[in-house]
Simulated assay, not measured.
Amino acid sequence: MDKSGHRPVVGVIGNRGLINDRYPIHEGGQMNSCAVANVAGCLPLLIPADPEMVSVAELMRVCDGFLLTGGRPNIHPSEYGHEETDKHGSFDRARDAITLPLVRACVAAGQPFFGICRGFQEVNVAMGGTLHPEIRDLPGRMNHRMPPEGTLEEAFALRHRVMLTPGGRFARLFGCTEVMTNTLHGQGIFEPGPRIVIEGRAEDGTPEAIYVQDAPGFTLAVQWHPEWNAANDPVSRPLFQAFGAAVRDFAAARR
């Protein structure tokens, strides 16, 4: 919030869904909005990610930054030159059509975004990288998927370490080179895009923390879900605080 009481606007990328398996909606996890409002200190605005309703140019004018959220639908493999298989799961082509060009436009303009899970994968694909449809099928990899049963607390429990590049952006942000995170994803980075810098990896080598090299703005993205317990978790809190600071700086500069 600036001196006038104005909170910069963060566009929270929504997903398509159904209520009672029949009523189409645009939806966003409440945890995302809470993290943006209460930890980043910004005004969350849920975005219907559909090119029939919004354009990248309009979103960039209205919003000061963007939260690229997680979501059950995956990026269609044609976006990174792969053939569709049963392992790729479900898709949201409308979201693909908004978020991938949005990432590239924000990188060029220095407009901040923070990628989470699917959003992490969107950053890689937008910058020319590829994904693997099922990370656990790769030799030596662990199962990164959400446990099939249990409470939310159990689903978002800290499950593995992420080792960070010493002296890198994430290590400086956290003040350490190793953190514990949750893990709730099936897909993951296979080939990083040419400008994607991997600064964090899980114990099995899976990329977990990235940013876009030589981008003028905030471009951090993580494969885990920092929106869970964001106000209290020592890893999640500094991520959202740093994102909020970047959004405020961008908003102030263009005002």
Rank of each mutant, 00 (worst) to 15 (best):
T165D: 12
L100C: 11
L46Y: 02
F174H: 13
A49M: 05
L239P: 01
A108M: 10
T85P: 08
D2I: 08
T85G: 13
C63F: 03
H6V: 11
A253E: 14
P101C: 13
C63G: 02
L68E: 00
Y23I: 15
L158F: 04
D92A: 11
A108H: 09
V125I: 11
H6S: 06
G186S: 12
D64M: 07
R172Q: 14
G193P: 08
P192N: 08
L220H: 02
D64K: 01
A94S: 15
F190D: 15
P139F: 08
I75K: 03
P234I: 09
F91A: 12
R104S: 14
Q121A: 05
F174A: 05
P8M: 05
R169K: 09
G186Y: 02
V123K: 00
T130E: 10
D214I: 05
T183K: 02
D21F: 07
T177R: 06
M53Y: 10
D86Y: 09
E79H: 13
A35I: 09
E203A: 14
A97E: 14
M163K: 05
D92P: 07
Y23S: 10
D21W: 02
N124G: 09
N74D: 14
F190V: 01
G11Y: 08
S4H: 06
D64I: 02
G140C: 13
T183E: 04
A245R: 11
V10M: 01
N38D: 15
L131P: 04
L43H: 06
R161D: 15
G150Q: 06
L239Y: 03
R95P: 07
A251P: 05
Y80F: 15
C117N: 11
C34K: 09
S4V: 00
E178F: 04
R95Q: 13
R201N: 07
G115I: 02
P112I: 00
G119H: 04
E227R: 08
I13G: 02
K87T: 10
F218H: 05
N38P: 00
F91T: 11
N182K: 07
L46C: 02
R141E: 03
M142G: 01
G168H: 06
E178S: 14
A57V: 13
G167Y: 09
V10F: 01
F243P: 00
V36T: 04
M180E: 14
P8N: 07
S4C: 00
G128L: 12
E27H: 07
T130I: 10
R145K: 14
K87R: 15
A155T: 11
I13T: 15
V54A: 09
V247M: 12
P226I: 04
R72W: 14
R255L: 10
P194M: 11
G115T: 07
G11F: 05
N20D: 15
L239G: 02
N182I: 08
F114A: 05
H185Y: 12
V36S: 03
E58T: 10
K87P: 00
D249S: 15
E191W: 03
D96E: 10
Q223M: 10
N124K: 09
A109K: 13
K3R: 11
G167E: 09
S33C: 15
L43N: 01
M163S: 09
R254E: 11
F114E: 01
A246W: 03
A202C: 14
N74M: 12
T130Y: 04
A221W: 01
G65C: 06
C106Y: 05
A246Q: 07
L102V: 08
Q121H: 08
R248N: 12
I189E: 01
A231N: 09
P216M: 08
G11L: 03
